[in-house]
Amino acid sequence: MRLTLYIWRQKSTTDKGRFVKYEVENASPEMSFLEMLDMLNRQLIERGGEPVAFEHDCREGICGCCGMVINGIANGPAGGTTVCQLYMRHFKDGAVLYIEPWRSRAFPVIKDLVVDRSALDRIMQAGGFISVRTGSAPEAHTILVSKETAELAMDAAECTGCGACVAACPNGAAMLFVAAKISHLGLLPQGQPERDRRAQAMVRQMDREGFGGCSNHRECEAVCPKRISIRFIARANRDFLRASLFYSKSASGKAGATGKTKRCFEK
């Protein structure tokens, strides 16, 4: 396969960045997209050039590292997959591809196609956890969870925090990510004590990071490697609304696992 690539090259966060044209020959349809980039990088190194920086780790489609926008679609045209599981057979011979990093104010470019997704970690730190004592694992049957609930929670828990939802959203919103995290804990019994606090704290942090707002374009759902449904966004909206109406402790306050206080009539 012959390919013409326009790849976004950016030396550092402060660099302006630009597209650089590369011609790739002898790509095989069996190669994954990352293997094709590996081949290009080897050629660049042999010629004494700087290889294209891109993030990758497991190359099995589960770690959520290897995101990039290919011809205007986050993670490329196949849908429901990461770039490492995207194969060159999805492209035509002689294709012209524009490869860009996730573009979002909250995801500064570190180098070339690598972005800093710490904003998502800070959202998790704000409320994406449950407060339990550590120790030996409790007997699994002490807390019963129905099969339906467990599966729904798993659907949300599949989120790897790759950031494709943010990259694809016309508004640069992180709602699918936040909603998946709010829902997967909020669906399970262990997540109940902090459910209100969690919804408020995670949404507040999301806003602080400079993400946009959800307009229900459904672009996130379309590119999510785990095909997480926007139904979780409706669910998170519901949780946030409920928390705002009935829960007084401000998100910055230190409400612990049992620190749930209902707002009575304020004086």
Binding site: Y6, G17, F19, V69, N71, G72, I73, G79, Y98, E100, R103, S104, R105, A106, A168, P170, N171, G172, A173, G210, F211, G212, G213, S215, N216, H217, R218, E219, E221, A222, V223
Partner: peptide, 29 residues
């Protein structure tokens, strides 16, 4: 307020942009 916020969330725009789900109505609200 939301539009200003949304526009500000992506200072560098995509060179190529293809929509998969967002329709004409949702993008022109």
């Amino acid at each position: 307020q939301l539009t200003v916020r949304n526009r500000g969330s992506r200072p560098v725009r995509y060179a190529v942009r293809r929509y998969r789900e967002a329709d004409y109505a949702s993008r022109t609200m």
